[in-house]
Each structure stands twice: as structure tokens, then as C-alpha cells.
Simulated scan of single mutants.
Amino acid sequence: MASLPSPNRSTWQQLGTLGVELARRRALAFEPRPEGVRGPAWQRLLGELATPIEHWQAARRAAALAAAMREAPQPVPAHSRPVMLLPGFGTHPARMKPLATTLEQAGHRVSDWGLGFNFGPSEDRFARLVDRVATMARREEQPLVLVGWSLGGLFARQIAKALPDEVALVVTMGTPFSGDRRANNAWRAYQLVAGHSVDEAPLAQDLATKPPVATVALWSPRDGVIHPRSAAGWPGERDAALALRVTHLGFAAHPEVARTLVDVIARY
């Protein structure tokens, strides 16, 4: 029976480098939270587990309402606008498909951000996204509406600052743009996966400053991941803040969120 080859020096060096990197990321994940800074209570975090049930219940209510209104006169469709959806940290654009479907039914042209899973920002990813927004705005001959969930909302706000002529409206959903960057229950996971501190992230500068375009923040008092105050912001950091009673995960697909987006886009 042939023996297995033994690892060579290069393999051991690679394993050693990997071990150092894993230790560094573990240290980032277990950094102490600043004194006085808190994320949502653990009860709210556990409440995120109920998101699928809430979506099912909300979808049943929406279907019943649609059936009851089939004979009613239908409203005139809103003016069609190009909309880009930006996913939250660690998620794929497919998670926001229910929002896209409702927006398309309202007459809008919807696209995702084109970068796959959102595992955090880098200078290259941000540059590619800026190019994509600029290209789409030229093709559409109209500035875009950017809808960002959680970390995706930070991308949206920063893109609007870089391309104010190509962005007409920014809508953030459970996005931690205001206050301390550790006032949430996701910063440790972010530092573990992204490999850098939230203070050193490529998008970490000037997060609270309002983009020079209409900016609406959707937030929830039930959010188990992001502190409601961080997602709602303060006057001057956004133009309006609207509260929805959904979980943080619910922002990606809840029918009430979808209806609110249609209303907000029609209003701005």
C-alpha cells in the first residue's frame, strides 16, 4: 500500500500563515465593546428567529387583501423609475427578491447590485459599484433609486455622496449609519469575516453625514441586530425616518416593507 506524501515546507508555511490570520480575526471578533455602548437586547435578537413565520402570516394577509380588492378600481401606476437593491452583510441579492417583485409590479425597473454576496466593503468593490451605478444611470437616462438593507444602506449612502447626479433617492433599511459603530449585535461577526475593525472599514468615514440627495431611513423598534437609534438617525442625518414593526431580517422580504418602499419612491 502506497504511503501518503508528507507535507513539504511550503505547506507548513501556508498552514502557519493561515493560523496567524485566524488568530488575528478571532482577536478582532472578541474585542471588548466600548463602555456605555449597547446593541439591541438579547430578547430582540432571539426574536429574529420568528422572521419566517411573520413573513408567512403577512403573505397570507396580503393575499386575502388582494383577493378582496380584485373588483376595486386599480390605482394609476407610479412613474417608472430605475431601482437598485443592495443586500445586507453576509447575504445574497436573492434574499431581496420579494421586494424586487413588488417594485416591479408597481412599474419600476429593478436590478441588484451585481456583486453577489455582501461580505463587506473594499476599495475595489466600492469602485466597481460606483461604476455600475454610473453606467446604469447613463443607460436609463435617469438617476437611480438606491435601496440598501443594513450594510447595503451604507454602500448606498456613500455612493450617493460620490455620484449625487446619478442618484435620486436613497432608502436605508435597518442601516447603522448613526452613532457608535458598535451599537449593534453584528460588529463582531463583521470584524471576523471582513478581517478589519469597523473603524477601519473602507466605508467607515463620515457615515452620519447626509448624502446630498433625498434620504429616507426605515427602522424598526423590534430590530434585534441594529440599535433602532442607529438606524433611525437624527434630523440632519437623513430627510425622514419611518418606523416599521418588523425584525431586522424582515426588512429583506416583509410585505409591509415592500408596500412602504412603493409609497416612499412615489413620494420622492
Rank of each mutant, 00 (worst) to 15 (best):
163 L>F: 08
215 T>M: 14
21 E>K: 13
2 A>N: 07
139 R>H: 12
189 A>R: 12
142 Q>D: 11
14 Q>T: 10
40 P>G: 08
201 A>L: 13
65 L>V: 10
5 P>W: 09
191 Q>G: 05
3 S>W: 08
41 A>I: 04
81 R>W: 04
46 L>C: 10
166 E>K: 15
159 I>L: 15
85 L>V: 04
6 S>C: 02
254 H>K: 04
190 Y>L: 11
263 D>G: 04
195 G>Y: 08
190 Y>C: 06
257 V>H: 03
29 A>G: 15
191 Q>V: 03
226 I>M: 15
34 P>A: 07
42 W>I: 11
73 P>A: 09
88 G>D: 05
15 L>P: 00
261 L>H: 07
224 G>A: 09
145 V>T: 13
175 T>L: 06
90 G>F: 06
157 R>D: 02
18 L>P: 00
141 E>S: 14
108 H>N: 02
111 S>M: 13
261 L>K: 06
83 V>S: 06
150 S>E: 05
69 M>I: 00
69 M>H: 12
132 R>M: 10
62 A>G: 03
76 V>T: 15
236 G>V: 00
265 I>S: 08
32 P>K: 03
110 V>S: 08
207 L>W: 03
26 R>G: 13
214 A>G: 10
140 E>K: 07
11 T>L: 15
222 R>E: 08
236 G>P: 02
148 G>S: 08
104 E>I: 01
111 S>T: 12
249 L>V: 02
27 A>D: 12
17 T>I: 06
26 R>C: 08
136 M>F: 02
181 R>H: 06
101 T>Y: 00
26 R>H: 10
1 M>L: 11
87 P>S: 11
105 Q>N: 08
211 P>Q: 08
29 A>T: 01
236 G>E: 00
143 P>Y: 09
225 V>L: 15
243 A>H: 02
171 V>Y: 07
